[in-house]
């Protein structure tokens, strides 16, 4: 497969991240800043790989307490029952609430795991300068970037339940440390996806043929 070197980087152009204006590199005194919106121009997101690696690894580490620690504790008539993400899903299944169990399983377990694995795969594929299916990998990146927000459902459910179920000795719900870790995973993977530069996928392809 032959790739045309018809890229902005190759031809000496810089695309502004903020306003999408294309500038010619090295022209004028303010060449390092976009002439329209003033944003600093870079050919690629700065330190994209090391930044994305650092954030992804942090998210992996936080993922462990997010799943081991309770995300909330329901106390009814004095008896407290801590719930982890997984036990919460299991309870929904035993309660016969299948659609809800599937939804929470997808948002709280499938999405974060797939997101971390996808980021790792994309990082490795760029690291090893893979030229395999760049278009599909770019699509994979776009999906990763958009789907992550849906993992926040469980955090919102907790925020609603703690304020609503405040019935003194009858029933109370308290958040748990697992929720803090899980919220961290969601936010950090969102930052990780933002710091990854999909153009690196295509750069590897180009350098292979030069």
């Amino acid at each position: 497969m032959k790739t045309p070197s018809n890229t902005a980087a190759h031809k000496g152009y810089l695309l502004c991240h903020t306003c999408h204006l294309l500038s010619q590199a090295g022209i004028g005194v303010h060449s390092s800043h976009c002439s329209r919106c003033g944003t600093r121009l870079h050919s690629r997101k700065p330190n994209s790989l090391s930044r994305t690696w650092a954030l992804t690894l942090t998210a992996y580490i936080l993922y462990i307490p997010a799943n081991l620690l309770p995300i909330m504790t329901v106390t009814m008539s004095g008896k407290g029952e801590p719930d982890t993400i997984f036990s919460g899903v299991k309870e929904l299944v035993t309660g016969g609430m299948w659609p809800l169990a599937l939804l929470i399983f997808f948002a709280s377990i499938t999405v974060p795991v797939l997101k971390l694995l996808t980021l790792t795969y994309l990082l490795l594929s760029v690291h090893f300068k893979s030229s395999w299916r760049p278009k599909e990998r770019t699509t994979l990146y776009r999906i990763t970037e958009t789907v992550g927000r849906w993992s926040m459902i469980d955090i919102f459910v907790i925020a609603i339940l703690v304020a609503l179920v405040k019935l003194g000795s009858l029933a109370t719900i308290e958040a748990g440390a697992g929720a803090v870790a899980f919220g961290g995973v969601v936010v950090i993977t969102m930052f990780a996806a933002m710091s990854f530069d999909p153009r690196l996928i295509w750069d590897a392809l180009e350098n292979n043929h030069e």
Binding site: T7, L15, Y141, R142
Partner: peptide, 14 residues
């Protein structure tokens, strides 16, 4: 450059 060209934000194609 302003009036004629642009680049793809995902793959850098001009």
């Amino acid at each position: 450059s302003r009036t004629h060209l642009t680049a793809c934000h995902d793959c850098d194609l001009l």
